[in-house]
Amino acid sequence: MSDLKRTPLYKEHLRLKGKIVDFAGWEMPLQFDSIIEEHNLVRTKAGLFDVSHMGEIEIVGPAAISYSDYLVTNSVATMKNGEIVYSPMCNEKGGVVDDVLVYRISNNKTLFVVNASNKDKDYDWIHKNSKDFEVQVKDVSDNYAQIAFQGPIAEEILSEISQVRLDQIPFYHFAEGRVNGIKALVSRTGYTGEDGFEIYTEPDAAVPLWRKLLEIGGPKGVKPIGLGARDTLRFEACYMLYGNELNDQNTPLEAGLKWTVKFDKNFIGKDVLAKQNEEGTEYRLKGIEITGKAIARHGYEIVDGDNVIGWVSSGLFSPTLGKSLALAYLKKDYWKLGTQVGVSVRGKVVPATVVKTPFYRGSVKSKG
């Protein structure tokens, strides 16, 4: 008997012949078609993702905003209701407990959307640190199914069945209303580099909504997309993957996320990050382009002659750009664009060059 968890859409994935794998303790579809074809579909049209495995943690009470602000490095206090912020949530040493989306629901309620693999750890962390704040912390993950609809034509298709005015939802904002007659929270967010939405519903409502989107989107090319393409898409856009780019050792400043750290407020880990901000970091996450078609995998060493100068956090052959690319933590002397480095690939050193990130900018709306 499997101990793996299943989302409300699990049977749909079987029906659509998805290749099921174990992902963070969940039975999830890796792919339905080829990963490359699914990737290209999202870049050019739109694709449908089951992200119901993500965790949702609610903070409710008079101090919900101030406590949420204390938990994360970015600012919740300056947000308006209906806005969302992306942020690392740090430990006392400045390492990243998780990277989260914080939805400001009201003046006394926020919703943290957290990575599936970290959900229990995050809940314990948020609960443990809440003692001095007048709040209640609730794991409400079982109350939600989540569908992501991503791609340049996502708004055009979703607007056919949405009673929520999608054109009135700016990037990193959300609205509550009905989609296909189903009560939903709709946010203009995603993990692909393309425009799109993430739709939160009650679990029982997930299957009818999923089927409806495939029905109305099918004639325009819409298909279900698995975790494989989700990773290649996020990589090209240089979105962080916890366990690769982020962990409880490396800090947001090392990960190139200084823009998410607001030093004009108090938060867990601030002292360490403030010192690091003043003195600089030894390593920083950078983009590199590998000569030829060798793939730089997670954990491969970056070298300069006999010296190890860093390590790869994520790497693949980019379907959109036709290049072998990687995100890597590099020592300070190697950060400049155009710097030549080597990647140790199965015992052979392959030349690579430090390049600008993000590797790809798509139809995703900007915040400005």
Rank of each mutant, 00 (worst) to 15 (best):
A148F: 10
L9R: 09
G221K: 08
V308N: 02
A63V: 00
K5A: 10
L253D: 03
K119C: 12
L185A: 07
R234S: 15
A46L: 12
T44N: 15
N307I: 10
K348F: 10
I126Q: 09
E301C: 02
E27W: 03
Y300K: 07
L233Q: 04
G322T: 05
E38S: 11
P319E: 06
L158M: 15
E282H: 09
R104F: 01
V350G: 01
N250K: 14
L30K: 09
K5S: 09
R6M: 02
F235C: 01
A46C: 13
S314R: 07
S324A: 14
K258V: 12
K93N: 15
D271T: 14
F267A: 09
N74C: 08
N115T: 15
I199V: 10
A352K: 01
Y200L: 10
N74F: 07
L48N: 00
L257T: 00
R361S: 14
Y239P: 05
A77T: 15
I268W: 08
V76W: 04
T78Q: 09
D132K: 14
Q340T: 14
G95P: 05
G193V: 01
Y123D: 08
L330R: 00
T260V: 01
Y239G: 06
P170Q: 06
W26N: 05
T201N: 01
T44I: 12
G228K: 10
I105Y: 00
L233A: 06
G196V: 09
